[in-house]
């Protein structure tokens, strides 16, 4: 039965991962929809703060994630890219062709 369970996991769709912060000044979340992620690694190259990496996740899919040592510090790492006034779109979002990366600010 565990063998079946495992197989079902591999074909199951991915998940939505939100990494970020909420404080008095608002919320900041980077969202990766792993179902849309094709593990191309363009976000890894595009991010000026080296936030991303492509790994095999717990369910055996290759997906982009926010690195372990970075995911607790999004507010400061992503701060410089946060759009205010006339700022360009986030490099990670612009680089992601399948549109798997979005943000909440």
């Amino acid at each position: 039965m565990f063998g079946n369970w495992w197989k079902r996991l591999i074909v199951a769709p991915g998940y939505i991962a939100n990494y970020g912060y909420a404080d008095g000044s608002g919320t900041y979340y980077i969202t990766i929809t792993t179902e849309k992620c094709n593990a191309c690694g363009e976000c890894v190259k595009a991010c000026p703060a080296q936030v991303f990496e492509v790994i095999e996740d717990d369910y055996g899919d290759n997906v982009a994630i926010v690195k372990d040592d970075k995911k607790k510090n999004i507010k400061y790492l992503c701060g410089p890219c946060k759009p205010t006034a006339n700022r360009p779109p986030l490099p990670c979002m612009a680089a992601c062709k399948p549109g798997a990366i979005s943000h909440s600010w």
């Binding site: 410089p80 205010t84 006034a85």
Partner: peptide
């Protein structure tokens, strides 16, 4: 300094 700079970079 890191935190402050990161915040200020948001306005340029």
């Amino acid at each position: 300094a890191t935190r402050t700079t990161s915040m200020v970079r948001r306005v340029g």
